[in-house]
Design a protein around this nucleic acid. Structure first.
Lengths: 198, 198, 198, 198
DNA sequence: TATGAATGAGTGTTCATTCAT
DNA sequence: CATGAATGAACACTCATTCAT
């Protein structure tokens, strides 16, 4: 009945898949794996629950794909820091102000790392993507440059990255909830960890 | 004539109750409210599931009691900072190194604050225990003293406390998982937020 | 393109809902609220237990809907007495011979009135539907007419209605069980309460 | 340790057993078999739940014993009608005004007869105690005498008894609930069934 | 492809019954 | 005898997943 050719169909399929994943990301990131019901995702994506299973084999698969995407986006984001303008400290400040989708990816990873009860494969993906092998590697040149320029405090740059990244990562989770009580700290206060200056 | 002395019975009851709450704390803190099944708590406490209901009316009640305890312990912990020896900075450093149970309480509160699906009463308890009214109030004298002694950076002490506490609080969650990847930062690095010095 | 026409779907839904309610009525009426397990209803309706929850939010809701229906049917039945042929005494005789479904509704109400452990809302519905405000009001003209025609005994018609209705109502409960021991009385014997004649 | 001899112990035992049965009767009669929890009986009897099992093997046994007692008391009550003073109609009027405990027994039997889910043995006891073989047999001489004295309406006395007894029995259930809506009918109105006179 | 009805395994909770003291 | 802690087999209800249409 449909005159659409194979390619067009594939494109529609991919768009629909992307649309579902965006909806899923928002809910998984805020509610965690167990707290997320497929009905929520379906409703947010504007489709029926059954249709989810035409695109994803299971809740697990959908979650794992999101984790993979989150890891990839996160790595890409880190790498793009070098394209940002300004001095090392300015680059880092800009990196710290992630856009909303970036924050969701952070939260998703943070959640997957700190919760029990998530799919085993997701756990393993997260483990592989350890800070040492990715984030720290990527940011090391920036920090070394910053230290040379005397913008950053001295000491092991890898440990500095690790600490800073951990703090920022943990704070994302709070920020996304717009929780008045946990006031999102001033970026400048956080940067003190790296700069060692008021 | 009575099979067991009333006092003895009460003591046994209290011990058993405490034993269940300790088990529950460990699981709730790590897995969150929804992710925690009563069967897990029962198994961890070494009792049957049904017995839980001799001691607690419901999962909600158990959770709420834990939240109350967590808040109380947290407040007490904060207040005890003034009994610690040393200068303001040394007091704060010691406070930051909480014992394991303290960390679990932190995680529990952190979790309750950042998750959906929590019992309404628990939510409200957490709200009442906002940083402004408790933590910040309690720590304000310490920070002002630190600023006078020029150990702490200048600026609004309340904002400083809020930021530092938020960061430490968020990091507790990671530390408890003994997650090698998220390396628990050096306390000294964190203190830079407060001291403004390397 | 849509798999099923919206109207068709709604019809199927309504039929299925009706089918469940009929099954539920039979079991609730005989076994009472507490004595009725959802598995019984599901089995009788030929569906799975989980499916019940696509049509009714809870056991309570299902029960309350049945009570509402029972009250409505009961009122409608009373009102229809005036469409029946014959003299007042003949009309009343016909009304006393209710069909099977009518009897189930009577039993349901009877049960809800005389049992503990019923949902609060159901209790309230029953209270509102007190004899005074509905049944007695509706039947009063019939009884007054019967008294004028000298077919009914003299005295307060409202009290007469109340008594007669209470007796018939209580007897329904027995009849439904096809209990040989409690033989359903001859209608004529019961009518003596109203007529005051052999 | 106890200096009590065997007989005294047995007496105490029997008293305690009776005390439990009285408590059980009140609750079973009002709430039915399923609706009655052993904890309710224990509380009402002022003993612990466990102690129930020193006197009764199970909930079923307790219920069955009560049914047996109810049947026996009911038969004895019927028989005692002949000791009452007055004419047949006055005797019947007095019988209809049962004391509270008698009403509870009626309700218990009524409940057991009209509910599903009660122990099989209780069901069988009730069946054996059919009206034909007991109640009707016992009351038949009274009714025949009443008919001879022209106090009662003519016709099959056994059917008359059956009807009257059924109506009274069903009404007990309502009366015990002190339900304003179901107004307990005037005894005189009920007696019309038997007398055929206003 | 798309729907939503349908299923069943699993959760929180209750309660008759048993048991150590 | 007497207690109340302890158990486990239900029960009401939820939700990921399947399936007929």
């Amino acid at each position: 009945m449909s005159p659409l050719n194979g390619d067009q169909l594939q494109i529609i399929r991919d768009e629909r898949k992307e649309q579902i994943m965006i909806a899923a990301l928002q809910i998984f990131a805020r509610r965690g794996y167990i707290g997320t019901k497929l009905s929520m995702i379906a409703t947010k994506a504007g489709i029926s629950q059954g249709l989810l299973y035409h695109y994803f084999k299971s809740k697990d698969e959908l979650f794992i794909l999101l984790i993979q995407q989150a890891i990839q986006e996160s790595i890409d984001g880190m790498k793009s820091v070098y394209q940002l303008p300004g001095s090392p400290i300015e680059k880092l400040r800009a990196l710290t102000r992630l856009d909303n989708e970036g924050q969701l990816y952070f939260m998703l990873i943070h959640h997957a790392r700190t919760s029990d009860g998530i799919p085993e494969e997701a756990k393993q993906l997260i483990e592989q993507y350890s800070m040492d092998s990715y984030v720290v590697d990527i940011l090391e040149p920036l920090f070394i440059e910053g230290q040379k320029a005397n913008e950053f405090t001295q000491g092991d740059p890898r440990q500095l990255i690790s600490t800073y990244f951990t703090v920022v990562s943990a704070l994302m989770t709070l920020n996304i909830h717009e929780d008045e009580a946990y006031q999102m700290p001033e970026v400048n206060l956080l940067l003190r960890i790296v700069t060692g200056r008021p």
